[in-house]
């Protein structure tokens, strides 16, 4: 009986291990929730971004507008245009009357906000071994140089008829470039590439590719 019990236990365990509940991995596109359904936008006006301290050598605002124009045109069925405004001051962003006046009753949405772009050249000393090296070979430079870029933007969507903001969100990205020849224009492009993904996801609920596991009996 004991031998039979042991045998039965082994058989039971074997059947349990062999039973099929293998997980199957699938990749799915998970839609997000859209802050604004893109079909509802008839006209998107890119009004530019307010900068407290504009960069001297490079027009950040123009680069951002150009980038967003290229991004939104294929994604929105309505029209997308650049509509630069003259900023009376930072308070204009919250001034409904300001936007109603510029909108002139059009059934449109302004995309605007604030932007702050920082670029620096940073140097760092390497470990002391590089400096103390003494021999027939040329020692490597004791420091390394990087270019640092930071872009912080607040994106606001404003209904042109009411002047009310319908979307507001902050984004910030930084970039450390080993290539010291990297230009500000190209860095803004790279940084906007990262911001765009988050912006579109939160704005239009773009799909996110995720892996899920299905248990199949």
């Amino acid at each position: 009986m004991r031998r039979n019990s042991a045998l039965l236990a082994v058989i039971a365990l074997g059947l349990a291990f062999c039973s099929g509940r293998a997980p199957v991995k699938v990749s799915v596109e998970i839609p997000g929730s859209a802050a604004i359904p893109r079909d509802t936008i008839q006209t998107l006006l890119l009004a530019g971004f307010y900068q407290e301290k504009p960069a001297q050598d490079f027009d950040v605002d123009a680069a951002l507008v150009r980038y967003l124009l290229d991004e939104f045109k294929p994604k929105i069925k309505g029209t997308v245009e650049a509509a630069p405004v003259s900023w009376p001051g930072p308070q204009a962003l919250s001034d409904k009357e300001f936007w109603k006046k510029i909108g002139a009753g059009r059934k449109a949405t302004f995309l605007t906000g604030k932007a702050e772009f920082v670029q620096e050249t940073r140097k760092a000393l390497l470990d002391s071994g590089a400096r103390d090296f003494d021999g027939p070979f040329k020692p490597r430079d004791p420091w390394t140089v990087r270019k640092f870029f930071s872009l912080q933007i607040e994106v606001v969507l404003i209904d042109a008829r009411t002047g009310e903001p319908v979307f507001r969100r902050n984004f910030q990205e930084t970039l450390n470039a080993e290539n010291i020849k990297q230009t500000a224009e190209f860095a803004v492009f790279d940084l906007m590439g990262r911001i765009k993904i988050k912006l579109l996801r939160s704005l239009f609920g773009s799909e996110r590719p995720l892996d899920r596991y299905l248990l199949i009996k």
């Binding site: 990749s27 980038y67 290229d70 991004e71 045109k73 294929p74 492009f189 590439g193 765009k196």
Partner: peptide
């Protein structure tokens, strides 16, 4: 034409992070 002029650069960023063309995704 379909995705805008920035799409080329985005595509190459994805190629860079893809390793092999069939890697993961």
């Amino acid at each position: 034409d379909r995705y805008g002029p920035n799409a080329i650069r985005d595509f190459w960023q994805i190629l860079k992070s893809s390793g092999s063309f069939l890697a993961r995704r």
